[in-house]
Each structure stands twice: as structure tokens, then as C-alpha cells.
Nucleic acid binder design. Structure first.
Lengths: 191, 191
DNA sequence: TGTACATCAGTGAACGCGCGTTCACTGATGTAC
DNA sequence: TGTACATCAGTGAACGCGCGTTCACTGATGTAC
């Protein structure tokens, strides 16, 4: 989409267009760069600088969007989880998200986010709180914080290991089955 | 170290020198590239091609070395783990490794390894088996495979989350304490 | 309602960078006779 | 023991690449009077 095809010098909502172009590229597994995103949005290489301070800012916005999407995915599961197996479905959904949108998942988690003001940090915090609330509801008597870390860690670890091919499964269904299995196996052993 | 400083045209054991140069760079947090590694080893940019097919081959060798080191770290823990809290120490050691050598950890896990012949794949398998054996020893009656995935997933997930700043702690000791806590919290809840 | 002007949101050329990889080469080493 | 020669392990110049970012710019838009 060049200037003339677009029908005007001004774009309208380039910020959103850049974000969705970038998201499409991540989803298509294409390498991500400011220039490539601009190219895809049909705009000069420097146009994005009107909307994002630098490459990192775009990436950060993308990650934040990813966190919101992930949160939605988890929220759509059986509403307030009431049992251990409801929690297992959280893990299943989490891993499914990672496998469905691997490049986005890497952008969300692949690098330290030290910026305290980062939109991304807030989104990640929201995720953590959702998990903590869920675990607290199911196991009110336990140490919610430790348990939330454990649950998140488990889901996240499995996601990474499947994503990176360290654990393998033939299909998405099999992955789901194994994630469930891993989650429930823990509960079956008691000290 | 240039040719003259080295005292000869031939290096002696350039392969090993490249690997250790690369490892030092990873540990120092410097960006990793074939050229940079060659530079650090005091050798021309093309010399590495005598020993590694391409950049990926070097990276793969590095990752394999990392897996062996990690295995050693875990092996040095309380020998054959006999209890749940021994297993928790595995997780603690795993996360400590990741935090101590973050760039190496990323090389080991950051990308899919699909090459079946890869040295790296073998090393990762060895790790998986160590974990499975350990879990089987402690919980002989359980589904060892599912449990091993769970244990690995949990340790790995916590490692990633701390590494990427999604979970935070003030010091290495606090990280260890929280990892232990997460691991043991799970065991304290029974369905 | 028309016009002057400030501001906004793009352009496009150019910069310097480090990268992976190729190529033809040459100095050093080892081996067969 | 000496010498001819093959092979090995380096060199260094060069390639093309895409990147992030800067700069001075210009076309479009909106607002005040």
C-alpha cells in the first residue's frame, strides 16, 4: 500500500496499522524489524518514528497486546476455576497460546523488562494477579503467592519446553493431554 | 592475540579456543557473533570456518557444553535425591544456573532444535533422563514421564520467569528461597 | 466565509554498522621414499 | 637423513545484506480571527 494507493498523504491510524502489520508478521513467522513493519504497512521506513520512540517501543506495545490477548484466552476458560482440574485447563490454555503464537510469545517473554513504567510490565502483573486469584480461590488455605508462582512457572516452563522442541508431541491435542497429565501428576503424589 | 603474538601461523587448538572465547563472551553478556568470537580468539574472521560449518554449528556446540555443565551442577547436588525436598534442590540449582549464566541458558533453550543429530539434542535428552530417573526414584508408583515433565517444566518456567524479570527477587538467596517455596507449596496442597 | 498560519504526519536520501559468508591465497606441517 | 610434495589451517580483501536511526523536507489538516 503506497501513498497513492492509500489515497492520501495521511494515513488515518498508522499506529494501529503498524501494530497489526507487526502482529501479522510475528504470526507469519517473518523476522521482525521496524523497517519490515513499515514496509508492510505501506509507509516509509521512518514513518513509525511518529508513533513509536524506537524499535523497542513498538516491540513493547506488541508484547502488551499479547499479554492482554493471553489474559482473554485464560479468562474464557471455565470462568472462576473451582478445582484443580480447572486450574489444569489454565495451563493447557497457556501452553496452547504459546504454541499458536510462538513469535509473539517470545516477544512477550524473551527479554528482561526492567522498565517499571512499561505497559508490558503492567500487563504481565495483571496476568500474575489473575493466576494468584485463581489459585487462592481453589486453595484458600495455602500460601497463595508461592502457589501462584508454582502454577505460573509450571505452565510457563511447559510452554517454553514445547515451544523450543525440548519436549515433543505429535499434535496440539497431544500437547494438551500431556500438559494436563503433568499438572495432575503433581497432585497425585503426596509427601 | 595476533598471529605474531601467538608465535605461529598455526594455532594449536583453535576449536577449543573459539569455544572458550565464545563462552567468555556469553558470560560477559557481550553480543555473540562468529566475527566477534574470532576477534576475541585473535584470529581472522574466516578462521572459524575450518572448525565449524557455520555460525549455527558453533552455537550448537556451545549449547551442548552448557547442557553438560548444567548436568554436572545438578549431579553435584545431594546425589541421588531421596525426598521431595531433595528434588526442590534440583530446581534451585537449575534456576541458579540460569541466573548465573543467562546468555548461555538462552542459547541452550532459546531456539527450537529440530536437528535430530544435533549434539545439543543428545545433551538435552540426557538432562531429561536424569530428571525422570530422579523423580522415579522418589515417587516409584507415579507416572514417571508425566512427573518428570512437570518437574522439569516447573524448574524451567521459574528459571525463565526470573531470568526475564517477570518474577522478581532482591538477591540470589531470595530467588532460591522462593523456588524452594514454590516447589514445596505444591506438595502441601492435596486434592 | 475566507484566509493566514501553526502543527501534524508523512517522505526519501543518507549515515554507519556489524554481520555471515565466499574466494583465492599462503605459510606450516607431516609423510613417503 | 634429506628432500619433494600433499594436505592442513590459517589469512585478508571483498561481497551484499538489512538494520536502526538522523536529517531536512513537504504535503495535509485544523484552527483563530
Amino acid at each position: 500500500m503506497s501513498t497513492s494507493e492509500r489515497g492520501g498523504y495521511h494515513h488515518g491510524d498508522l499506529r494501529a496499522a503498524l501494530l497489526s502489520a507487526a502482529m501479522e508478521m510475528l504470526e507469519a513467522g517473518e523476522p521482525f524489524s521496524l523497517r519490515a513493519v513499515a514496509r508492510r504497512a505501506g509507509v516509509s521506513p521512518t514513518a513509525p518514528y511518529r508513533h513509536f520512540k524506537d524499535r523497542d517501543a513498538l516491540e513493547s506495545a506488541l508484547a502488551a497486546e499479547g499479554f492482554r490477548d493471553l489474559l482473554t484466552d485464560l479468562g474464557d476458560e471455565g470462568r472462576p476455576p473451582a478445582s484443580l482440574s480447572d486450574l489444569a485447563e489454565f495451563a493447557v490454555a497457556y501452553v496452547a497460546f504459546a504454541l499458536r503464537r510462538p513469535a509473539l510469545f517470545r516477544v512477550m517473554f524473551g527479554k528482561p523488562c526492567d522498565d517499571a513504567d512499561d505497559e508490558r510490565v503492567k500487563a504481565a502483573d495483571a496476568l500474575h494477579q489473575l493466576l494468584a486469584a485463581a489459585l487462592d480461590r481453589v486453595f484458600p488455605e495455602a500460601d497463595a503467592s508461592a502457589l501462584a508462582s508454582a502454577g505460573w512457572g509450571l505452565a510457563h516452563g511447559l510452554a517454553c519446553l514445547y515451544l523450543d522442541g525440548k519436549l515433543q508431541a505429535a499434535s496440539d491435542e497431544e500437547v494438551a493431554e500431556r500438559v494436563r497429565g503433568a499438572f495432575l501428576a503433581i497432585a497425585s503424589v503426596s509427601p
